[in-house]
Amino acid sequence: MGGWDRFVETFFNAKVMAKYLPDILSGMVVTIELALLIVVTGLAAGLALALLRSLGIRPLNWLIIFIVDLFRSLPPLVIIVLMYFGLPYAGPSPSGFVSTWLSLALVLMAFSEEIFWAGITSIHHGQWEASRSTGLSYGQTLFNVILPQAFRLTIPPLTNRTIAITKGTALGTVVAVTEILGQASSAVSNSYNPSPLMMGAAAYIVLFFPVVVAARWIETKFAWKR
């Protein structure tokens, strides 16, 4: 058996791959669920914080800025570990899935709040004045005039950040979430063969590569002219 054959036999072993394919597929389902939950809740919470911040209530804004800074400073893995291994000492014992979801949603909330807020503040003051002078209320101006323009500005940084954070679902493996990497790792130790890991890697590429390419396209489409 030549070197190449041995390599293929080791890293792309057909028998092992066939055996563990269902595990990897179920891992993909968990990864997708986790990713969607993180994106939806994280972005919604980030937008909500940015809107709260636009009300301009001083002490509230300090609190928002502190929370945002906190979750931008801490490594996501530290937050996950703290939630999973630390919180039970205080009572609640979130599962690995919930710990990963909440941690990454909080991180995405922090980053997206910052981006949404920058978008809102970057809209020229004249837009507020023109809209208010025709009788639109604060809320109507925010939703009809300011946010549509702000969203356009925020889309490129937001997509990049969202992808980077969503990839962090792999961190769930540290707290026993049965997502792709978790499934692949246990399959490797059970079969004593690295093929499942290669399948896992392929699964991530299948899931995230199209998203990255789409993000590149969005970036050029929404690039601000001038």
Binding site: G168, A201, V212
Partner: peptide, 14 residues
């Protein structure tokens, strides 16, 4: 784009 799509932890474990 490949490495933007690939979680760093997966790369590390690999």
């Amino acid at each position: 784009d490949f490495f933007r799509a690939f979680p760093p932890l997966v790369l590390l474990v690999l």
